[in-house]
Amino acid sequence: MKIALLHSRIRMEEKLLVKAIENSGVEFDLIDMRQVHFDLENPDPWRQYDVIMERCVSHSQAMAALQIFNMWGIPTVNNYDVGMICGDKIHTSLALMMAGVPTPSVRVATSQDMALEAIGEMGYPAVLKPATGSWGRLLARVDDENSAEAIIEHKMTLGSYQHSIIYAQEYIDKPQRDIRTFVVGDECICGIMRESEHWITNTARGGKASNCPVTPELAKISVDAAQAVGGGVLAIDVMETPEGGLTVNEVNYTMEFKNSIAPTGVDIPAKMIEYVISVGESNK
């Protein structure tokens, strides 16, 4: 059994994953995506790996690598299809909706007029998000048509071409917190509550993490969401609705977890590596 951990910058998460692989006793290589090239006609150098764990911080770099490995038949965690779905919020919303997993309403439009009409139909407030992006960046809560018009015009004028696709999500009036759960395979291994006075509760934006007990309801919606996008090692962002239900906001396929180990008491990297090894073993 031999694992490759494909990375770009080494975050605390990658260091913890390396320790977990070392503890497992499995042979592994650390591969910096920026220091390799691929001969598309020659997969042989990569066939020495039973499974490749992808941990690139860049979505587009990750997709390039996963596409190549999976087309060559080399298993990866996560796989290309999962990355494609999770890396695109339109795709994620569709996957969740088609699987019947509760998720906020979404409207998509490609012009300012149609975007304003769509948000008007859905109702204010709404949240404008880049279809690709993470860490809570460039999210905009729009409370009325005036603010929506201004934000959309700025996106269309100043943004890259991706920003001309307007993704408007129903605003969920959640408590000053949301929930992040961690799903490994078919198990929801733990969850955290992220609290913030700001409506954006990402820990990357200063949200404070505490343990969130995994109730059967939370486990079910988390595992359902993970399976809806194709399964693997995933972090599910869940919001509590004013009606007392749960709804899935986003699914992350290269999850960060350093702030979640202490509050949950769960050795998340060890669980992740156990799963990666199991994928590699099933490939033997």
Binding site: V57, S58, S160, M255
Partner: peptide, 11 residues
């Protein structure tokens, strides 16, 4: 000096 965060970076 580390590269600036790119638009497609994240988790």
């Amino acid at each position: 000096v580390a590269p600036e965060v790119e638009e497609d970076w994240g988790e």
